[in-house]
Design a protein around this nucleic acid. Structure first.
Length: 669
RNA sequence: GCCGACCUGGCGCAAUUGGUAGCGCAUCGCACUUGUAAUGCGAGGGUUAGGGGUUCGAGUCCCCUGGUCGGCUCCA
């Protein structure tokens, strides 16, 4: 080995490079935008040392895309400050598919501002500015960024406790660094920012695969007590083609939006007259919902649940006892106040009271439990209710059915002995997963929400929490599904497992939750007589499968993009006669199917046949049955499927059997 | 709740600098009777979200309320 050379490992292979070499000398491929040196992400300009173990970071890799997007965020910030030098910098990290940057500006950005900023960004990108890393001490950073109050705050936070939360892209562990954007070819510093990096070698590599998407306000450091900054979001990709593909994907996702499909397919609406977050279901949505509910009822009945009913409002004492009023009063509709009434003598004739719309069903079920003395022989006791609840959600957080102010939980409460707890939890989890699969979801992982040490929100003793958490963890582990921890995410009365389901385009939705509760049974003082004659407190398991029927309905709508499988589809079959003359023949078939419970209609309208096909295709009807002379002659019928394919001359019996089988099996078609 | 944008027949959208509210789909009527995604002709339908203001005149400008959308925060 020459004295001028050092030995390093490049992508797992030993190699000799000249002393003083950087990533640029090692990686000739222009698609390599950074490197990992001994596991740490570094700029290509980093000088290598003997023994370094390095690997290439390709722009198309996850790390590479993050670097691209992060660099694009810098260009955005530079563009904003060149247009408005008064803008103060917040943070600007990469996010899924893109990036954002927060600015403190007098006047919020308008769509026209975004266009101008985007144009400015293009010129910075074309100019090919180099990203240059400069290591700095805290004092140097403070002096160079003296005009940037938010950056100064990040620096001081880092020096004080090292925990900077969202500012991780700006300030890493260890030494601070500043990235300078150096112009080409004259080498002037056009702009700089506090940043841990790494960055692309040059702005030119951003190319034309980026776009600014929207602006919105965001609280500084994610705290609503802090000032709101103006955030600009963008997306960035290695090529223009990938950007286009991303925009197309966005549009496809928008077409699945349940609010849009709910309108187009006439499923439900949110009339302004009722109030925000309160839906009405139209007949077609009503069919889907009823089928969902009916199937759920049937399965619950088979699994040993008993059905109970409870009212929508209650006097305040119920939620005082349960603890909900203490913790969630802000999230409840304000009380209906009944003043006390007095007679002429001034004696109280009717006591005053506050009535609340119920935000939860559990206290009612506890009262059902308490309506008689219970023995261990009664347990497990499984109570089920489609219970409508009302929560005063903040006005800015109501995206259609997925979060509403009035919704119906498929709520169950299981009262169990400590000995039965684990087995019951296992059964519940399996029951939930099996049912979700029946509705067409089959890609799951679990989340275990536990309490946060020392947070007074969580009631009950350490010992109880530890026991509950351990039980849930064990059961979750045995399911074989991935378990993701969610510290601090528990309800105030106990830890929970939630089932997260992935939909058809890979988005995850929180579905079912299973919560353990040792606290409410104690708060209400419910008990049972054990085999030895002693009085014991049962353990309560809260469980919602859909979570909310409305929400589940919305998720399924998006999952299926409105193409509900036949068993759920509001109209399962529509008959289309080639001419009026064949209408009677189709009505005959329809009557036969209807007798077997199939939802079928025959389109007798004046429209041309082609128009009918178009209409029912747009309505996403699973089966179109077309009949003309030929079909009638052969006692047959012709299928047209959702994908436009067709199968002609299918014998009537086979056609009927096929439709019934598709409904029965809950398959998608 | 906060920031911004938006709200025009059932739905989707137009309407110059403030000057008679239009179009497509849907609906209704008439004609057409058809073999796999839009037949033709005609008709009806709007106090421009609600309220207030500026103006000779407001869909358009200003204020208030409600709602929607995109974010932030929150979600038992």
């Amino acid at each position: 080995m020459s004295v001028d050379n050092i030995e390093i490992i490049v992508d797992l292979e030993a190699r000799e490079v000249a002393t003083g070499s950087t990533g640029f000398e090692v990686f000739a491929d222009r698609q390599v935008v950074a490197m990992r040196v001994n596991g740490e992400l570094r700029d290509l300009a980093t000088t290598l040392s003997a023994g370094d173990d390095i690997s290439a970071v390709h722009i198309t890799s996850e790390d590479g895309l993050n670097i691209l997007r992060h660099s694009c965020a810098h260009v955005l910030a530079q563009a904003v400050q060149s247009i408005n030098p008064e803008a103060k910098l917040g943070i600007g990290p990469p996010i899924r598919d893109g990036f954002y940057y927060d600015f403190d500006v007098e006047i919020p950005f308008t769509p026209d501002d975004l266009k101008a900023i985007e144009k400015k960004m293009q010129s910075i990108i074309k100019a090919g500015q180099r990203f240059k890393r400069v290591g700095v001490s805290d004092a140097q950073a403070q002096s160079r960024l003296s005009a940037e109050p938010y950056k100064l705050e990040l620096i001081s936070l880092k020096s004080s406790n090292g925990d900077i939360g969202d500012g991780g892209a700006e300030v890493g562990a260890g030494e601070l660094s500043i990235y300078e954007n150096v112009t080409h070819p004259d080498g002037e510093i056009a702009w700089f920012d506090l940043c841990r990096g790494p960055h692309l070698p040059s702005t030119r590599m951003i190319g034309n695969g980026f776009a600014l998407t929207r602006s919105a306000a965001a609280y500084w450091r994610g705290n609503e007590n802090n000032k709101q900054l103006q955030r600009i979001y963008g997306t960035a990709w290695p090529t223009k083609e990938e950007l286009q593909a991303h925009l197309v994907r966005q549009e496809e996702a928008a077409k699945r939006d349940h609010r849009r499909l709910g309108q187009e397919l006439d499923l439900f609406s949110f009339p302004d007259e009722i109030g925000s977050g309160l839906a009405v279901f139209h007949p077609k949505g009503g069919i889907i919902r009823r089928v969902m509910e009916d199937y759920s009822r049937k399965r619950h009945e088979e699994a040993g649940y008993e059905f109970v009913y409870s009212p929508h409002i209650t006097k305040s004492n119920l939620f005082e006892t349960s603890g909900h009023l203490a913790w969630y009063a802000d999230g409840m509709f304000p009380p209906i106040r009944l003043d006390e009434e007095r007679d002429e003598a001034g004696l109280v004739r009717k006591q005053g009271a506050d009535y609340y719309l119920k935000p939860m069903n559990c206290p009612f079920h506890v009262l059902v439990y308490r309506s008689q003395s219970r023995s261990y022989r009664d347990l497990p006791l499984r109570m089920f209710e489609f219970g409508s609840v009302y929560r005063y959600e903040k006005s800015g957080v109501l995206p259609g059915l997925t979060r509403a102010r009035g919704f119906t939980q498929d709520d169950a409460h299981l009262f169990v002995t400590p000995e039965d707890m684990e087995r019951e939890l296992t059964d519940v989890l399996n029951f939930v997963l099996e049912l979700l699969r029946d509705y067409g979801l089959n890609d799951f992982y679990l989340e275990l929400s536990t309490r946060e040490e020392g947070n007074p929100k969580f009631v009950g003793s350490d010992e109880i929490w530890d026991r509950a958490t351990a039980a849930l963890e064990k059961v979750a582990g045995e399911s074989g599904l991935t378990l993701v921890p969610d510290p601090g995410g528990a309800a105030f009365y106990g830890p929970k497992i939630s089932v997260q389901a992935k939909d058809a385009i890979g988005r995850t939705w929180q579905m079912s939750t299973i919560q353990l509760d040792f606290n409410i049974p104690a708060a209400f003082g419910i008990d049972y007589t054990a085999a030895d004659g002693s009085r014991q407190t049962p353990i309560m398991i809260h469980r919602a499968l859909f979570g909310s029927i409305e929400r589940f309905f919305g998720v399924l709508t998006e999952h299926y993009a409105g193409h509900f499988p036949p068993w759920l589809a509001p109209v399962q079959v529509v008959g289309i006669p080639v001419a009026d003359e064949y209408s009677a023949y189709l009505h005959e078939i329809a009557a036969q199917l209807r007798k077997q419970g199939v939802r079928i209609s025959v389109d007798d309208s004046d429209e041309r046949m082609q128009k009918k096909i178009r209409n029912h295709t747009l309505a996403k009807v699973p089966f179109q049955l077309i009949a003309g002379q030929e079909d009638r002659d052969n006692n047959a019928v012709s299928f047209r499927f959702r994908d436009g394919s067709q199968e002609n001359g299918v014998p009537r019996d086979k056609a009927v059997a096929r439709i019934l089988a598709a409904i029965e099996s809950k398959e998608q078609v």
